[in-house]
Design a protein around this nucleic acid. Structure first.
Lengths: 235, 235
DNA sequence: CAATCTGTGTAATCATCGCTTACATTCACA
DNA sequence: TGTGAATGTAAGCGATGATTACACAGATTG
């Protein structure tokens, strides 16, 4: 980031009130097609390249080929842009989780929980920076975005229901359901954040091994909470 | 942050080469006592007040009563200052963890592991912003700070050894020790991050209940990995 | 004791950033 | 066809991190 401006006026325009420009030079109509969309895409790309902090309104404008003030017609602040980016990321996240869950066997709640956890981690491993913005209060305000909090609540509800079914089916023994839910969430969230924050190498988990380890700890957790009289899950 | 400058020259000096100032005005010797230390303290305070992003070199200088360029005599960049802050935080973290562990019973490895986990979470709950800077690669570079990575490695080694002892003592059944270590870390780290990132309210965990819940999920994890029966439960 | 060297603070300046305001241009609709 | 709303540009404000030239003070040494 922080490139040196790089835009000498390029003779694009004599700068003062000019007669209609004729547009013979084509390629740059005064009005951008769908600037809002383009800005979100550019910001998504910036997040992917350098994390949430790498997003600047000016850089997004630059990539959209537009003046630094233009984005403010569509987003009142940088935070608003980040919110839009977070909504987009959260939407993709939810879509992938639900798609993965659709392929899980309907009969076995604990098995579905396993699919849920693994899909969650797979997306987080593949999209660490996007996962980060939808997870950390620092980069946007969940409470201010109905779309994000809605998608998020939907996913949380999904896992809660799944675990509750497992509980009802006697797959969890006598454990405290709420504790199991929170511990399960902490486990997958923690592993995802360890990946994002670069902790895994220190724990001896190389890039090639990450996905397998993710599945392993989900399985370990399930084995730990599963009712020991009924080894229903897996195998 | 972002306060409006607020420093009209205050007539402190006529700006051009002046004869010795006599220091009759006392209170402000040209050389600050220990600016480096004061800057770190100011930055620590800023982290505590508004998180890592709230740290600015200029604000630290302001609080130290010094010109905006002065800090750069001690820290070549903002990141270097953040590194120093992280070292301080990591030092305090380690000290508290080790103190807590010293009070744990030496005979029972799994019990010591429990103390470790609870002490870890207690510090994280009480110092969320400081915990964040030593955890997230975003705010400083572990690899560039021998002090931080040393303290950190020491703590990790501690938990690894503790769990290994439990394993040797037959308290873990036949589980994969490495997986247990990583899952345990993911669990506590995840819970700490959930707290930092403001997820806990959504999971129904209020501020008053946080510490208890932290202890509960550590216990739940330990119960899950403790011997009782092997994972596959070939009862 | 005096001269000078080195460390540390100040002043001024630069480029970038988010954001605002005044103005220009274009589109859509009456 | 004309006019207002939408949406772009230009210019500028105050903030930031960073650099440079200079001022001062403490320590070292002749």
């Amino acid at each position: 980031m922080r490139r040196p401006a790089k835009s000498p006026p390029t003779g694009r325009r004599p700068a003062k009130p000019r007669p209609a420009a004729t547009r013979a030079q084509a390629a740059r109509p005064y009005h951008h097609g769908d600037l809002r969309r383009v800005l979100i895409d550019a910001a998504m790309q910036l997040v992917g390249e350098g994390g949430p902090e790498a997003v600047s309104v000016r850089e997004a404008a630059r990539r959209a080929g537009v003046s630094p003030g233009a984005p403010f017609r569509h987003f009142p602040s940088r935070d608003a842009l980040m919110n839009a980016v977070a909504e987009e990321a959260q939407r993709r996240f939810r879509a992938e989780i639900e798609a993965a869950l659709a392929e899980a066997p309907p009969g076995d709640p604990l098995g579905r929980f396993r699919h849920l956890g693994i899909a969650y981690l797979r997306w987080a491993m593949k999209n660490p920076t996007h996962f980060e913005i939808i997870s950390s209060r620092r980069f946007f305000d969940h409470d201010r975005s109905a779309a994000v909090s809605g998608d998020n609540a939907e996913l949380i509800g999904l896992t809660e229901r799944t675990l509750a079914e497992a509980f009802s089916a006697g797959q969890l023994g006598t454990r405290d359901l709420r504790q199991v839910q929170i511990a399960g969430r902490a486990l997958v969230y923690g592993f995802a954040r360890m990946h994002i924050d670069g902790h895994l190498p220190r724990w001896g988990v190389g890039d090639a091994e990450v996905e397998q380890m993710a599945a392993d700890i989900v399985d370990l957790f399930i084995a730990g909470i599963a009712s020991h009289a009924a080894p229903a899950a897996k195998v």
